[in-house]
């Protein structure tokens, strides 16, 4: 049996539409399910108070602070290193042995499971360098984890800046550094920002790596050397220990809303980037 071209065309469209609908359906179901179960329990008290009796009662304020501290630190450390690496790879070196090794290394780093980073962070930062289970150890570990993402997205954003812009800048008697700083980076900034925001999202939702490095203390952290539990880890512990599921879902809802916000921000930046690079 043979299908007519028109019929096969319709069949192909139908199959692809179904696949797309399934993708969006799963996404929507997960988000709505968690939000429906969690949002009713998200109150101002929940957001602004410390947990009581292991999280059975009370709120998640220390976890919000801990999450921001650990992931913020991770991105603050990895962003400058990652962007500088990307600039070096794209603007200051030719394709060669060295850049291939650096890129290969970054790609390998991106493929390592986060629990391995957690283990490394625990052994190296927490124990080896004596930082203990702390925001510092967690932040440094997350920094290593998201570094490849930041390098790669920055590299792509920098490469997307037309070569002619650089030629014009050189032709006008500007140095390479001026050209990189005021022409290339300025044009690549929204793209680099997108990568950083996505990395922040990944840091916020990370569980395994922070469990082993930032620990799970529930108090409000007083310094970078204090242990602090993040939202994702709090959710994991609540669900795992059979503590009230309402609190677990409420935590998850807060996380999901934060992630949606961050992704919208990344999307907005990306749109601006493409509008600029017309």
């Amino acid at each position: 049996m043979r299908l007519s071209p028109a019929a096969s065309q319709r069949a192909a469209v139908a199959v692809m539409w179904t696949m797309t609908a399934a993708t969006i359906g799963v996404l929507a179901f997960v988000i709505l399910y968690v939000l429906a179960r969690g949002l009713p329990h998200v109150t101002w008290e929940f957001l602004s108070r410390a947990p009581e009796s292991m999280g059975r009662r009370g709120g998640i304020f220390p976890m919000i602070v801990g999450t921001l501290a650990v992931s913020g630190m991770g991105v603050l450390i990895s962003a400058p290193i990652g962007v500088a690496t990307a600039i070096y790879l794209t603007e200051y070196t030719r394709k060669g042995m060295l850049t291939t090794i650096i890129r290969f290394g970054a790609d390998c780093l991106a493929g390592i499971p986060s629990i391995i980073f957690g283990l490394f962070g625990f052994v190296f930062f927490a124990v080896g360098l004596g930082m203990g289970l702390s925001i510092l150890s967690g932040g440094l570990t997350l920094a290593l984890m998201v570094l490849p993402t930041i390098i790669r997205t920055s590299e792509e954003a920098i490469r997307a800046v037309p070569q002619s812009f650089r030629e014009v800048s050189f032709g006008l008697g500007c140095t390479r550094w001026q050209t990189v700083l005021f022409v290339v980076l300025r044009s690549a900034l929204p793209g680099i920002g997108t990568g950083i925001v996505l990395s922040l999202g990944r840091s916020i939702s990370e569980t395994a790596a922070v469990m082993l490095t930032a620990g799970s203390a529930m108090g409000l952290p007083q310094s970078l050397f204090d242990s602090s539990r993040t939202l994702a880890l709090h959710f994991y512990i609540l669900a795992r220990e059979g503590l009230p599921m309402s609190k677990a879902y409420a935590t998850a809802a807060v996380l999901i809303v934060a992630m949606l916000g961050l992704n919208l921000l990344a999307y907005g930046l990306m749109k601006r980037f493409h509008a600029k690079a017309r």
């Binding site: 030629e167 032709g171 044009s187």
Partner: peptide
């Protein structure tokens, strides 16, 4: 760098910076 200021170049395709 100074040389390129003394010799101004205009390219075939106009490239205004964005």
């Amino acid at each position: 760098v100074a040389l390129r200021r003394r010799i101004g170049m205009v390219y075939a395709v106009p490239v205004p910076l964005p």
